[in-house]
Amino acid sequence: MKSNHPMSRALARRETIAGYAFLLPSLIFFLGFVIYPMALCIVTSFFDSTMKRADIFVGLGNYRELFQDRNFLYALKNTAVIVAVSVPFVCIFSLWVSSVIYNMREPFCSIFRCIFYLPVVTGSVAVTVVWKWMFNNYYGIFNYAGKRLGLLEKNINWLGDERFALGCIILILLTTSVGQPIVLYISALNNVDQSLVEAAEVDGATKFQCFWKIKWSQIMPTTLYILVITTINSFQCFALIQLLTSGGPNHSTDTIMYYIYHNAFKLYRYGYGNAMGVVLAVIIAVLSAVQFKMARSD
């Protein structure tokens, strides 16, 4: 036993070194492309930083300005609306759809899975262009159908009217957001221990009781994951805004992500943009923590 000891130690050391060596490339990339930019973002947020000029330290100046900036507050409000609508809708809708289709016979389950997943794998630009055409003020299909069905008297400028624009953005966001949760829920529901469900049914439990008392608790980790991911995606809604409305009309579709982009890359106010980025990161972190805590207490 004693004679084997030095051998094992050497082997363990070699394996440890090999382990770290394998880890090193990822670690370098992670430090270089994630941690370093994050740190730089936080540092720059305390400076009046613009292109090729010595940065001027302004302390919390950018943060003070942020909460007095009417457009930032608009963007914050719009982002909150998007999150408040899309997160519950995506979770409930995708759970409902997957509950209906997860135990369907093949190939129907696969067909529905493909249909709902299609907007996820289609390029966001292509999806947006099609929606833009459908919402078109002059010849879009929504105006055409609305008028043909007698629902509309005259064309509505869906993306050009502040009463409708944010709703249109949320609608598109929902269609592109439900695909992945549906696939995840189908997989989670298939992994539910069927013997427990059968036993409950034998004991006279209703379908709702089976779902609520047995399945819901078993798919909770998936629900938590979907909640967190959908919240983050909703907070980071950018491409749709950039491609469809540029934050207009009258800032009615400005989101924090778009406003960061606008300040950093259109007005070249990197420090101010980074301050917004830090605030956004804090909001997302706090919300995610709350979601984790609530899920754990459940």
């Binding site: 078109n136 003020n137 002059y138 009217d161």
Partner: peptide, 13 residues
């Protein structure tokens, strides 16, 4: 005053 189109869209229309 159309907030749903930019110059390129106007040309197409």
């Amino acid at each position: 005053f159309d907030a749903s189109i930019a110059g390129g869209d106007e040309i197409n229309l």
